[in-house]
């Protein structure tokens, strides 16, 4: 899965551009969406936060479950992808996805992140990860995330 680090993101949208270029997506559709939001911090300063909305490739994905024509499928690697030619554009997937990830192209076919499977098979990182100039995105398996966090905590504790 692709992990987003909000502490690093500077809102440059390079990931969105990289995604669109990689997959030739039209305006309106993208595999990754960066949201920005302003808030006041403790000192009364305005701060901008960013958050990337990314497909999580859920193990038991609601979009796969709900697609009436079985256009959204999960492959053996756990990557959830959509067969555009099968998609009818009913938008049930976007309504069922708790992160509202599915977007639609100009032919009203659902498009979403496919983890750049061709790039991964070629030994590359997904376009958004490779395109991020501040390394706010990383592709990591859940097990790796868990180990990284657990080790990191111990390391932090040891440096006290």
């Amino acid at each position: 899965m692709i992990v987003f680090n909000p502490d690093r993101c500077v809102g440059c949208y390079a990931c969105q551009v990289a995604c669109k270029v990689e997959r030739g997506l039209p305006a309106g559709a993208c595999g990754i969406t960066v949201l920005s939001y302003e808030s006041l911090d403790g000192g009364g300063e305005r701060r901008v936060h960013y958050r990337a909305l990314l497909c999580h490739h859920c193990a038991d994905a609601p979009c796969v479950r709900i697609c009436p024509v079985r256009a959204v499928t999960r492959d053996k690697n756990g990557i959830i992808s959509v067969a555009s030619e099968k998609c009818i554009g009913c938008r049930l997937c976007s309504l069922s996805c708790p992160h509202s990830i599915p977007s639609f192209n100009d032919r009203q076919q659902m498009t979403k992140c496919n983890l750049c499977i061709e790039r991964i098979e070629a030994g590359l990182k997904p376009a958004c990860v490779a395109g991020c100039p501040v390394a706010a995105l990383e592709i990591e398996a859940p097990r790796e995330i868990s180990v990284r966090k657990r080790r990191g905590l111990l390391r932090k504790r040891c440096c006290l």
Binding site: P68, V69, I88, C90
Partner: peptide, 19 residues
């Protein structure tokens, strides 16, 4: 059944509606 309107609109072939 949901996909029938999409079939008559010509967006998908008939085989696309089978589940």
């Amino acid at each position: 059944r949901m996909a029938l309107p999409y079939y008559i609109s010509g967006k998908i072939p008939v085989k696309g509606i089978f589940t």
